[in-house]
């Protein structure tokens, strides 16, 4: 919990500092940028390819909506649907499916000299993620020490919820009129500790593999309205 607190404080500090620097630059240049600069829709293109290569239980669809305010503030909502199937090295078969949601705010660290919507962006932001999902665990083993036998069983229809925090950085370049591409890299940390002995999910839609911090990468393509 201390790490999460430190994480949030550090992020807030970085965002405030960067925001202050950008503000100072804009004020110096005396440019009045209109508040509403449009809305962007993006999707992650990597799963569009990987979905074809994986089995039908492993997939991800993800879309993002980002509002451009003064070319500086970008409130973001992300929605996705993800399924994961994996036979683990221990023989356990995991299958999970669920929706995930993220809300947050990006800051553009590049100063804008235009009153029009910026074409290129260097974004730094934060997200709060949430997923409500179902999962099955098959072929999980336990040892009957009394009889000296190794027994396997299935646990089907488990449901769970998860909340996590992300720091996100990335760039976007407009390659055609209103069409932009770019990437985002993000580090995610789960909020809250699982109860000891509880059957935690191996994978959380939108978050990734449980157990520690997760690094993730998105290659995005988007359209500006």
């Amino acid at each position: 919990m201390y790490n999460i607190f430190r994480y949030i404080v550090s992020l807030t500090f970085v965002l405030l500092c960067s925001n202050y620097l950008v503000s100072q630059t804009l004020e110096t240049d005396s440019i009045v940028v209109p508040l509403w600069q449009g809305i962007e829709l993006e999707t992650d293109v990597v799963p569009l390819i990987s979905n074809l290569l994986n089995d039908d239980k492993t997939f991800r669809y993800e879309v993002l909506s980002r509002v451009n305010l003064k070319n500086k503030y970008f409130p973001v909502v992300e929605v996705g649907y993800e399924g994961k199937h994996r036979e683990l090295g221990s023989g356990i078969d995991f299958t999970g499916t669920g929706m995930f949601y993220r809300v947050g705010l990006d800051f553009n660290l590049l100063k804008s000299m235009s009153t029009q919507a910026v074409k290129n962006k260097f974004l730094l932001g934060a997200r709060l993620g949430y997923s409500n999902f179902f999962y099955d665990i098959s072929n999980i083993s336990y040892i009957d020490e009394y009889k000296g036998a190794d027994i396997t069983g299935n646990i089907i229809g488990l449901q769970s919820k998860s909340l996590w925090f992300e720091i996100v950085g990335g760039i976007r370049i407009e390659i055609l009129k209103n069409v932009s591409v770019g990437w985002s890299v993000r580090i995610k940390n789960q909020l809250g500790e699982p109860e000891a002995g509880a059957i935690i999910p191996w994978y959380i839609p939108g978050f990734g593999q449980t157990g520690s911090s997760v690094w993730a990468f998105n290659y995005m393509i988007g359209y500006k309205f």
């Binding site: 683990l88 090295g89 221990s90 356990i92 995991f94 999980i140 336990y142 002995g197 935690i200 191996w202």
Partner: peptide, 15 residues
């Protein structure tokens, strides 16, 4: 007895 989940690497145990 209670079923206790250890990890995906270790499986489950009865406590």
């Amino acid at each position: 007895s209670d079923l206790y989940f250890v990890s995906y690497a270790c499986g489950m145990i009865y406590t």
